[in-house]
């Protein structure tokens, strides 16, 4: 039961966001029709339509990434809306599970600017 509710929430949020992004693009560029986007990411238009309506669960990580790339959206945000965590992030956490689990929990309620301070900056030296 709990699992079903989880999927319904993500199906709806992912689909709505996807549709909104695509429609905004289509307003300026007709190549963002349902049919053409489906063609570019390699799915049937009918399937993409069901995803947008929330009739089916969000697609695979690969398809979600392709959709994000086609629509100029952030792949991690789209994966999160789909209820998924990127496989490369999963690998990072699995490599040092305690460290990253502690870090993520501690940062849960931190404001964005505080989190950004933790991002690794490229060090600029003398040249």
């Amino acid at each position: 039961m709990g699992q079903n509710v989880y999927y319904v929430v993500h199906m709806s949020r992912f689909g709505e966001t996807l549709r909104k992004l695509r429609e905004e693009k289509r307003a300026k560029d007709r190549r963002f029709s349902l049919r053409q986007v489906a063609q570019r990411v390699g799915v049937e238009p009918a399937y993409l339509s069901k995803i947008e309506r929330g009739d089916v669960a969000p697609p695979s990580e690969e398809t979600t990434r392709k959709l994000a790339a086609d629509l100029g959206a952030d792949p991690d945000v789209m994966l999160a809306l789909a209820g998924k965590v990127s496989s490369d992030l999963q690998e990072i956490i699995r490599a040092r599970p305690k460290l990253f689990a502690d870090l993520i929990r501690q940062l849960r309620d931190a404001p964005e600017h505080a989190v950004l301070r933790l991002v690794r900056e490229v060090r600029d030296g003398e040249w």
Binding site: K28, R30, Q36
Partner: peptide, 20 residues
Amino acid sequence: ERRRSMARMDSAHFEDGVAY
């Protein structure tokens, strides 16, 4: 501009075309 274009889109129809 986004609000205006979304309003225009409600009544617009687009055709498909072009390849990759």
